[in-house]
Amino acid sequence: MERAYKVYAINNGTVIDHIPTPLALKVVEILGLGNEGIFTIGVGFQSKSLPGGKDILKIENRILLESETDTIALIAPDATINIIKDGRVSEKRIISIPQSIYGVMQCPNPNCATNKLGAHRHFELEDKNTMTYRCQYCERVTEILPENLTAPE
């Protein structure tokens, strides 16, 4: 039997679809949604474009900033993002990986000032093709790995 709905529809807020399973919880983490408002998650739906399945995240009453939705592109570059107002899609947002990443990526170098001296995490895009970023403190170049992404500082 066809499911009545996959995840409850929302009247106002942000819908993020086509997140590769199981990264929806990681998206919740890097957006810092933890204790803030209502969000619903659907995990492991079938998807033509994502053989391992897709997750859906619906955040009620919050329109994500572009800087936030671009951060999602780091782990889900093909995610689709719809902004919902009064029950209708008011904006289909195109996401692209950000030039700068603040706060959400931990430098993998344990001897970096961000890990040892309290410097605020800051990376700049080094190479778009390889999705590598350079830490602005220790200057190491690193690939984007979900395990290096954390809740915002």
Binding site: A113, C135, Q136, Y137, C138, E139
Partner: peptide, 12 residues
């Protein structure tokens, strides 16, 4: 300083 990025942080 032995920590990488310490001088950058200091400059800020």
């Amino acid at each position: 300083h032995p920590v990488e990025g310490a001088a950058r942080l200091a400059s800020e």
